[in-house]
Structure formats: structure tokens, C-alpha cells
């Protein structure tokens, strides 16, 4: 059952029926809210997708969005379920999932992320990507609590598992599994219909992503709702197809690499575009993905 909630116009969030947007929602765009049943919503907004579950003992959010969009996310969930924010997870450290944390802290929520996720933003570090030092984020933007391997919330009648997979999208990923509602929020380990970002600079890897996707596929059943980090609501079959495509891309890049091509030459050849012509270029495109994959494989081979 995927009924779009109609009550949101009252608090300024308009509702769009039908499939998700062709392009990511921007700062001024209205959020889209989908009722997944089991008192869990998928909210698509500026920052990507967030799954929100009501437990009877407070709301659990799979991510925090951005400062501009976090307050409306909180208001929407509170208006729908008449519960206060209790827990906000960070599926990884990227800003579109975490920069809204201050609003959640103000609302009294406990923020939780993987140990590496917090470490990544709590310490001054040198960024190979920016070739510059990056300062720690402000304290109100850091999770108050971290975990290492696995974590479970038993709130009211809602069991929610937080599961860490090593070196997938980043080194600090968390998948949020609403067990009783049969909903899995994957963070950016799985994105639907856009070119994937595997953040090699933050410990992400193609092989780790494939392994994590296998685990997500194993957790899901035919009726499970999969909330991707970005893109429209998905099913287990969509994740299986995505996993197969990613593996095919991996082989395509490896084949060119075996022919002696450099990452730059592989980007030039753009071997992946033809494999997934429907995927949207967003943060990254097919050529970037191919080049990053080639660099990762070259590092592993060294």
C-alpha cells in the first residue's frame, strides 16, 4: 500500500502524486511523502530520501537532510504521527544526510552513527579529494552516540536494526532496517536511477558495496520496501538488478584495465554509459564512476 499522505498541505509541504521526480529535489521544492504502511514514511526532499518510523515511544529517522529541509522533515513526521523525534540515524557522513542534525538535537533526538562516520567529521583531517585540510564540523552537527558492529532499537512495538557494512559507500555506513514494518533504508549504498557514488576517499569500495548489497538483498523479501539514499522507492528486485549492473560495470572497467588503459583513458572511453542509459548524472556521471572504479582497482592491485 503506497498511499500518499494528503494532510501535509496544512503544514506547507505539498504533495505530488505518482512517481518520484526526474531530478533531485532542491532547497525550495516541496517534500514528497509516501506512506509505506507499518507506521513508516518515506520522505523525499532536499537531501535525498529519509525513512521515518513511529514507534509509540518516539520517532526514528534514518537520516537528517540539510539545514534548510530538516525542520520540515521533523514537522511532517510529528504532524503525521503525533510523536516527538527520539532517534536520528546518520547512514553516513555526507552533508546531504547529516547537516540537518542540529534541528534534531534541538528537538531532543539522540543522534547515532557508526564510529567511523563520526570520526570522519569530528577530527581535523587532510582531504585527498580537496587537497586541503578540512576542519571538524560544529558539535551540534556531530552524532552524540556511535556504535561499532550492530545496534538494535526496541521501541514500542517497532524493532529497528542498525547494521554496519564495511567499506561500501563509505567506511562508516549504516543501513536502517525497520523489521516489523518491512522497510529497509539503505543510505547511499543503494541509489535508484542515478549514477552511484562510491566515496573512495572515505573508505568506500566497489567490492564492499557489492557485498553490502548482497546482505541487503538477503534481508529483504518480495514485499519489502527499499528506501534508497536517492531516487524513487524500490523493491528487492530493483536492488538485485542494481547489484547485477554494478558487477557488470566492474567487469567492464577491469577488462579495459587489463588492456593497459589508465583511469583517465577509461573515463575517456566511457564504457559504462551504454550499460545504464537511463541512469541520471547527478553528483557524478558514467565517466567519473568508471575512472574512480579504475583507480580503486589499481590501488588494490598495487
Amino acid at each position: 500500500m503506497r498511499k500518499i499522505i494528503a494532510a501535509l498541505s496544512a503544514i506547507g509541504a505539498s504533495v505530488v502524486l505518482g512517481a518520484a521526480n526526474e531530478t533531485p529535489l532542491g532547497e525550495g521544492d516541496p517534500m514528497e511523502v509516501t506512506d509505506l504502511g507499518g507506521r513508516v514514511l518515506m520522505v523525499e526532499g532536499y537531501g535525498g530520501n529519509v525513512a521515518v518510523g513511529a514507534t509509540g515511544e518516539g520517532l526514528v529517522f534514518s537520516d537528517a537532510f540539510l539545514p534548510e529541509s530538516a525542520p520540515a522533515l521533523i514537522e511532517t513526521a510529528m504532524a503525521t504521527f503525533d510523536e516527538a523525534p527520539r532517534i536520528v540515524v546518520s547512514t553516513h557522513h555526507h552533508g546531504d544526510h547529516t547537516l540537518g542534525l542540529a534541528a534534531f538535537h534541538e528537538a531532543g533526538a539522540l543522534s547515532i552513527g557508526h564510529t567511523f562516520m563520526r570520526h570522519r567529521i569530528a577530527e581535523r583531517r587532510f582531504s585527498d579529494y580537496r587537497q586541503d585540510w578540512v576542519e571538524p564540523r560544529a558539535p551540534e552537527l556531530l552524532p552524540r552516540m556511535t556504535y561499532d558492529s550492530a545496534f538494535a532499537l526496541h521501541l514500542g512495538d517497532q524493532r529497528i536494526a542498525l547494521v554496519h557494512y564495511e567499506r561500501a559507500h563509505t567506511a562508516g555506513d549504516t543501513v536502517v532496517h525497520f523489521i516489523d514494518a518491512d522497510v529497509i533504508a539503505t543510505g547511499d549504498i543503494f541509489v535508484n536511477g542515478v549514477w552511484p557514488i562510491i566515496d573512495h576517499y572515505a573508505g568506500g569500495s566497489v567490492d564492499g558495496t557489492l557485498a553490502a548489497l548482497d546482505e541487503i538483498i538477503a534481508l529483504a523479501g518480495p514485499d519489502t520496501d527499499i528506501v534508497p539514499g536517492h531516487g524513487p522507492l524500490a523493491s528487492r528486485a530493483d536492488v538485485i538488478a542494481y547489484r547485477a549492473m554494478l558487477d557488470e560495470m566492474r567487469h567492464a572497467v577491469l577488462a579495459l584495465q587489463a588492456d593497459g588503459m589508465s583511469p583517465e583513458e577509461i573515463a575517456e572511453a566511457d564504457p559504462l554509459a551504454a550499460l545504464a542509459p537511463d541512469w541520471r548524472a547527478w553528483f557524478t556521471d558514467s565517466a567519473d564512476v568508471a575512472a574512480e572504479m579504475a583507480r580503486e582497482f589499481a590501488r588494490v592491485a598495487e
Binding site: E57, T115, R118, A122, L142, P143, R144, M145, T146, Y147, D148, S149, A150, F151, A152, L153, H154, L155
Partner: peptide, 15 residues
Amino acid sequence: LWPIITFQSGVNFYM
């Protein structure tokens, strides 16, 4: 009496 949040290896609180 049951704790509502559980973990396996450990957790850190920053407060």
C-alpha cells in the same frame, strides 16, 4: 524492565 537499545561490540557517547 527490558533495555530498549542494544549493541554487540560497543557504543560511545559524546556528552
